[in-house]
Write a protein that binds this DNA or RNA. Structure first.
Lengths: 215, 215
DNA sequence: TGTACATCAGTGAACGCGCGTTCACTGATGTAC
DNA sequence: TGTACATCAGTGAACGCGCGTTCACTGATGTAC
């Protein structure tokens, strides 16, 4: 629950606060978890970190930049998790789909605040996303696309690939959202139970796709 | 696009504005669609409706009450749509599941602003939901439960019912969210195309469940 | 090791803003007679 | 139909608040010599 103590070689306490930039990002996540994204204000962050309210401006150009950095870090962790799941899974395409789906849901369980800002906080119309954020989003997306294409073969009609991708994506995304928003949290006592159910649902779905592709 | 002209017998233009309460709720939806839930402020509403900023207080105790009323109306329409889909569908349980799923997704397509407030705006921790809202949420939920139970039979183990409900719910909810947030909107050119794909995915899933129940 | 200087993270006062909410009022509408 | 009155939706000034952002400053840290 405490801050991740990323131990560096040289300068752990170089400046007045130590690492205010890191602390701001971490505290933003805590506030999101407690009160939602809209409760993340530069003044609230400063207050809870015991610094003056002008201090955050030395690390982030403005509030929006800070929120976008939280989202970028979230998508980076997310893309990493999906890529690792893809790499660690057996080469069987069905097993890979399951592994990626599970990683998707597990990310939501382990990083609910990140998910909130990634999927609810930065979906506003007028928001200009920095290239770095777009890149991480694209990297995560690519894992889903690759796994789907691997499942159906490169020669499959693009409409079929699209529908399959969309179906699988919807399933795992819905699971993640229903966990974040409460319904799944209420239906399943522990996240282990929840993940087991999710894994079984994925297996069932993949079996269905295989039967359809074969028949 | 204009206001729904709910024609009443007696008093359509009784008071100064006509029906400011109705206008506030409708304008709130427009603002949500354009700028998101957090842009709905009592002053912005008054400004856009051409009334003084004190006027809304005569119809809603405060901002939160107005937002909750929008959510309640949303869930009422939503529950109605699901119940009608259930009633109109063939008695075959699989067909019913498909029909309800399609109604779920169609609601998101037709009422994106409502969905935003229903699933993103009132999910904050500290928010006290009025009983009327809880009742409409429960009514919508019950349609999903009933359809699932009808599919597997009353004697099915509760864990299986739970997982099946959760799987189906996740799928349709994910579809709705991916539409609202953009990915599905980008993948499918028209909502008809989107709905066709959704219908096909539902049929595939139901076929999978049937095979599993039979085998 | 010691000193002088440069850097820059953090301070705190200040600014203007939009917000939610209150409240005495006004005046249009509805009703009783 | 006309008049007197009651109702109450909408007005506009006022309040206090927290916010984002700026900026001259301070003082601790890092570095050059």
């Amino acid at each position: 629950m405490s801050k991740p103590s990323t131990i560096r070689r040289k300068p752990p306490q170089h400046y007045h606060h130590g690492n205010l930039r890191r602390a701001l990002l971490d505290m933003a996540l805590r506030i999101i978890e407690e009160k939602g994204v809209e409760a993340v204000t530069t003044r609230a962050l400063a207050r809870r970190l015991g610094v003056s309210h002008g201090a955050p401006a030395h690390h982030f150009h403005n509030r929006e930049a800070l929120i976008l950095e939280v989202a970028t870090e979230g998508f980076r962790t997310f893309a990493d998790a999906l890529e690792i799941a893809m790499a660690d899974a057996p080469s069987d395409p069905g097993a890979r789909i399951c592994a990626i789906g599970l990683a998707y849901v597990r990310f939501a369980v382990q990083h609910p605040a990140h998910v909130r800002v990634m999927f609810k906080g930065i979906q506003r119309e007028g928001l200009r996303r920095p290239p770095e954020l777009e890149r991480e989003i694209e990297r995560a997306h690519q894992v889903l696309v690759d796994a789907t294409v691997a499942m159906v073969g490169a020669g499959a009609p693009s409409g079929f690939v699209r529908d399959l991708l969309f179906g699988n994506w919807s399933l795992v995304h819905g699971m993640a959202m229903l966990w974040i928003d409460g319904p799944a949290k209420r239906a399943y006592k522990t996240w282990q139970e929840f993940e087991e159910a999710a894994a079984q649902i994925f297996r069932r779905m993949v079996a269905g796709i295989k039967r359809e592709a074969a028949g």
